[in-house]
């Protein structure tokens, strides 16, 4: 069984993101980039499936400009077998990403496709669900546990208020939540080995997909700022302030 995992290059989540002065977006020049953290969890899960013998090949796919190959290399260094790079300079919104991934999946025929539940740049949280829709496949979002069976899987999902377990027919699309696993670090020998693993390049035109954005970004501004309040010395003073000044208890 083949597992395909989608990985996105985003601003490193530990970097303080700055809005550009002309309100056209956020500053990305000379900013440290990284793999979207939820996609790392996806790569880890796919590799564990191969290590457990339920999967025999892990393919990592990324969409974007030439630099996303660095992100694919990271997935290869973690243990993915090969990469696919859909090369485009276009701004890719979730629907376009889902259409491009669908075209790749029709060529690759995986049984399980894993994506992060959201990317920490646009925080849209749509691509996995959209991909499942376009393929007509089962979807298991916000997964914290995946148990693969014969032609189906039991997936535990993180929902508001607790957990839910569903049975999904294969092929399926899964999106990862935090507790699914703890991704490994790539070892130096594996980073070296990853350099020799193949990355196949293709374009949206090769895949017959028009990736033009549907949403126009009008502007990006800084959020309203909160200001630091006061430090109180005692718990009695705090309770008094909450009761009589803020009137919230």
């Amino acid at each position: 069984m083949k597992v395909l995992v989608a990985v996105k290059r985003v601003i490193d989540p530990n970097v303080k993101v700055r809005v550009k002065a002309d309100e056209s977006g956020v500053e990305t020049a000379n900013v440290k980039m990284a793999m979207n953290p939820f996609d790392e969890i996806g790569v880890e899960e796919a590799i564990r499936m191969r290590e457990a013998g339920t999967a025999d090949e892990v393919v990592a796919v990324s969409i974007g400009a030439q630099q996303v190959q660095e992100t694919i290399r990271t997935a290869l260094a973690m243990g993915a077998d090969r990469g696919i790079h859909v090369n485009t300079d276009e701004t890719i919104q979730p629907l376009a990403a889902a259409k491009l991934l669908k075209a790749v999946i029709e060529k690759e025929q995986p049984q399980v496709v894993i994506l992060g539940k959201q990317a920490v740049d646009d925080d849209a949280g749509q691509t996995g669900q959209m991909l499942a829709a376009l393929l007509g496949w089962s979807q298991a979002t916000f997964a914290s546990k995946i148990a693969l069976g014969d032609g189906e899987a039991e997936v535990t999902r993180e929902i508001d208020g607790g957990l839910e377990v569903i049975k999904a027919k294969l092929p399926m699309v899964v999106t990862t939540d935090l507790r699914l696993n703890e991704p490994r670090y790539a070892s130096l020998p594996n980073i070296m080995k990853a350099k020799k693993k193949p990355i196949e390049e293709m374009t949206p035109a090769d895949l017959g997909v028009d990736p033009a954005p549907r949403l126009t970004l009008v502007k990006v501004v800084e959020p309203p700022k909160r200001h630091a309040g006061i430090i109180v010395e005692t718990v009695a003073e705090l309770v008094d302030k909450l009761k009589n000044e803020a009137k919230v208890i």
Partner: peptide, 21 residues
């Protein structure tokens, strides 16, 4: 978690780019 699970699936079936959150 429920809205996030359902609506993008409907959006893709309708060929629409959802606006989230």
């Amino acid at each position: 978690t429920s809205g996030k699970n359902i609506l993008p699936r409907a959006a893709a079936l309708l060929d629409l780019q959802q606006v989230s959150d």
